[in-house]
Computed example of a mutant assay.
Amino acid sequence: MTHYLDHAATTPMLPAAVEAFVESAGRVGNPSSLHTSGRAARKTVEESRERIAAALGARPSEVVFTSGGTEADNLAVKGTWLARRDDEPRRVRVVASAIEHHAVLDPVEHLVERRGARVSWLEPDRCGHLSADDLAALLAEHADDTALVSVMWANNEVGTVQPVAALAAAARAHGVPFHTDAVQAVGHLPVRFDDSGADLMTVTAHKLGGPLGVGALIARRDAVLVPQLHGGGQERQVRSGTLDAPAVHAFAVALDHAVATRDVEAKRVMALRDRLVEGALALDLGISVSGCWRPGDAEGRLPGNAHLLVPGCEGDSLLYLLDAAGVECSTGSACQAGVPQPSHVLLAMGHDETAARGALRLTLGHTSTDADVDAVLAALPGVVERARRAGGLL
């Protein structure tokens, strides 16, 4: 039996979303076509857009569909920087946190390497929290040449939740657009675009029970973006491409369900997470928790996130050994040219490379049960012992 604890990577589709997808996929029609079938597909898209907007506290006109979170982040970062730079050539700086997902980090690095952008990194504390005061101080010095601020709503590795409204307010006070990647937060936290103060917000379907390959950039109507794809001019002329009506429909159904059940589900998943963390700490293996964790906290840390540091082990060894034991999880580290790299998130939070290499990310979601937690706790002692032997530490 397989125990899936990698919901932060992707979560299984909800039955209602599968049903919606299959229902729509059985009907032909390009949403851009003017005939009857095309208009029916367009109706599906627009009704879904309205549902997604309502669930996220946005206007339908602010929902720009994309192929997922990575494309939405690229459109937000590159599109805003180019638009602002073109309008005011002095605006070449991007401010971003040092713990962003690579879907933000890599576009920023691209702008630096290929477009002459400058970047200022916001550094987290040991818990992974970012400070609105730090952002305000940075912008007090650099607001005149800053094109964009980008800070994720909740971290994909350690689950730390950021003070998005305060960060957005600091950016707005200096007249700088603010983008937040809310991919991990939607469905687990109360996320409302209108209350956040953000100008741009990234969401995706497959993290909340919808299909892979569809997401959205929520963009204020006055947000100016240079398109990154060119073609038919769909989606406010900023994101060309034929819309996947079945996937958009399933996205809307999954989001509705996630928001409707969020409060109850967050408490249930949080209880499983706390039992997992407490059980792992009690195994006398020297395991610690990365990021700040306290039992019962579903606001400062994502309710389903258990991120553990296992001394004397390589994360990849732990992952493969747990996989062999029927437990699927991740390390959160990167792999470049076949060589595992310690997590940039953990390094930014002040962990050294040795500690960062022994990371395990165990994330729970709507299919998680007590049996999944029991399986992890039963497997960990033997897995850690074997991983340490493989590393020559026993």
Score class of each variant (00 low, 15 high):
residue 211 P to Y: 10
residue 106 D to I: 12
residue 296 G to S: 11
residue 144 D to A: 15
residue 228 Q to K: 14
residue 24 S to F: 00
residue 205 A to P: 04
residue 47 E to N: 14
residue 244 D to F: 09
residue 264 V to N: 03
residue 304 G to H: 05
residue 307 H to M: 07
residue 336 Q to C: 07
residue 392 G to S: 07
residue 157 E to N: 15
residue 324 A to P: 08
residue 7 H to Q: 08
residue 196 S to Y: 05
residue 20 A to Q: 01
residue 197 G to S: 13
residue 175 G to T: 07
residue 111 L to R: 03
residue 81 W to C: 01
residue 117 A to Y: 04
residue 355 A to Y: 00
residue 351 H to N: 04
residue 274 D to H: 08
residue 39 R to A: 11
residue 132 A to I: 01
residue 181 D to G: 03
residue 267 K to E: 13
residue 194 D to Q: 07
residue 187 G to Q: 07
residue 205 A to L: 05
residue 306 A to H: 07
residue 223 A to W: 05
residue 271 A to L: 07
residue 22 V to R: 12
residue 39 R to E: 15
residue 55 A to D: 07
residue 188 H to R: 11
residue 193 F to K: 03
residue 375 A to S: 11
residue 378 A to G: 06
residue 314 E to K: 12
residue 31 P to H: 06
residue 245 A to Q: 13
residue 101 H to I: 15
residue 389 R to T: 10
residue 178 F to S: 11
residue 387 A to T: 08
residue 253 V to C: 04
residue 67 S to L: 04
residue 168 A to T: 02
residue 319 L to E: 13
residue 89 P to L: 15
residue 258 A to C: 08
residue 31 P to G: 11
residue 270 M to R: 15
residue 306 A to L: 09
residue 118 R to N: 14
residue 276 L to S: 00
residue 111 L to Y: 07
residue 154 A to W: 01
residue 246 P to W: 05
residue 167 L to D: 06
residue 4 Y to W: 09
residue 167 L to F: 13
residue 388 R to T: 10
residue 8 A to C: 15
residue 389 R to H: 11
residue 51 R to T: 08
residue 216 A to G: 11
residue 205 A to E: 05
residue 293 W to A: 05
residue 246 P to L: 12
residue 326 G to C: 06
residue 374 D to I: 00
residue 315 G to V: 02
residue 112 V to E: 08
residue 180 T to R: 05
residue 235 E to A: 08
residue 219 A to N: 11
residue 350 G to I: 06
residue 389 R to I: 06
residue 205 A to M: 10
residue 196 S to K: 02
residue 248 V to Y: 14
residue 175 G to P: 01
residue 12 P to G: 10
residue 273 R to S: 02
residue 292 C to S: 14
residue 134 D to V: 10
residue 14 L to E: 01
residue 265 E to P: 00
residue 308 L to E: 00
residue 304 G to R: 06
residue 360 L to E: 00
residue 214 V to K: 02
residue 50 E to R: 01
residue 172 R to A: 15
residue 27 R to A: 15
residue 21 F to K: 05
residue 51 R to W: 05
residue 222 D to F: 01
residue 154 A to V: 08
residue 325 A to P: 09
residue 326 G to F: 14
residue 277 V to N: 00
residue 41 A to T: 05
residue 356 A to Y: 03
